[in-house]
């Protein structure tokens, strides 16, 4: 029904733009990762695997990468532990307040990332709200040092940020479960817990996967929360990239690390997509 011209007009501009500003930059990143920096701080356009070799040989990179993944994994786990029961509660047991509660979960999503990270900083600091509160009610005499500038602070903040992200897809998948399935399950003699385990949980797997992917991928690449709240022990892989692109001035090495991150992320997306297909019964 649509003429060739029509299809060309709707296709060419976005394809051209996206190729220019998304595809080409990704390819460029890939190219950069094979280049190097001369002693005069000039980028040398000759290809070698030196950056990747360095990545694998210096333990700091791999260690930081693993620490980042470990932090991201904890964030994912906690977000699911907070998000799933919340989604279950809102979807099945909140009754008339359902819409209100749903929107209450959404609102923090709209609050600036930076504002939320900053809020935690004011809460967790050594003369922050939490420490002064603890002293005020005489639970502790001295400010607790581990609260701020630690991986703990990073995990806490990122969990706070990504819990609504994991809530949303889980909630959506719970909402899509036909309610008569649950009635059928009860009718066949299953208890509430059995119904949850054998009907609700399996049918909500796609939502859990989507939420987990979100939380893991986005926290893996985060560099602002660690800078703000992480301290030296909370440094993540993106912080290394930032310094390589800044003061350390080694763009090619930074590009190599970024490209590895890109590969990990894309790999994860494919993996979760395949899992999701396996678990979606529609």
């Amino acid at each position: 029904m649509f003429s060739r011209t029509y299809r060309a007009v709707i296709t060419l501009p976005p394809v051209t733009w996206v190729a220019m500003f998304l595809l080409v930059p990704y390819i460029l990143m890939f190219c950069y990762s094979f280049w190097s920096v001369s002693s005069l701080q000039v980028i040398v356009h000759s290809c070698s695997l030196a950056n990747y070799r360095e990545l694998l040989s210096k333990s700091v990179y791999l260690q930081t990468l693993f620490r980042s993944m470990w932090i991201a994994a904890r964030v994912t786990l906690f977000s699911l532990l907070l998000g799933y029961p919340l989604a279950y509660y809102v979807s099945f047991q909140s009754g008339k307040r359902k819409d209100l509660l749903y929107q209450l979960v959404i609102i923090p999503l709209w609050v600036s990332y930076l504002v939320r990270a900053y809020a935690w900083k004011t809460v967790l600091g050594s003369d922050g709200v939490l420490n002064t509160l603890l002293q005020y009610i005489h639970v502790s005499q001295h400010p607790l040092g581990f609260l701020l500038y630690s991986p703990f602070a990073v995990v806490l903040t990122l969990t706070h940020i990504y819990t609504p992200f994991t809530f949303l897809p889980i909630y959506a998948s719970l909402e899509r479960i036909p309610r008569n399935l649950i009635e059928a399950s009860h009718d066949l003699g299953a208890s509430s817990w059995q119904t949850f385990r054998t009907v609700i949980l399996p049918l909500s797997v796609p939502g859990v996967l989507a939420g987990a992917t979100f939380a893991f991928v986005l926290s893996l690449g985060d560099f602002l929360a660690p800078l703000l709240l992480g301290g030296p022990s909370g440094i993540m892989i993106s912080n290394i990239v930032v310094s390589l692109f800044g003061a350390a001035y080694n763009w090619p090495l930074g590009a190599a690390i970024s490209f590895c991150m890109l590969a990990i992320v894309v790999g994860l997306l494919f993996f979760s997509e395949r899992l999701e297909k396996k678990w979606s019964f529609r």
């Binding site: 990143m29 950069y32 991928v217 970024s258 991150m261 890109l262 997306l269």
Partner: peptide
């Protein structure tokens, strides 16, 4: 896939790749 990638990709990758461009 490429159009939608920035939705899920950490901002650092989008930012850096454009910086290089």
């Amino acid at each position: 896939r490429i159009v939608l990638l920035p939705l899920i990709l950490p901002g650092i990758i989008t930012g850096l790749s454009l910086l290089m461009l």
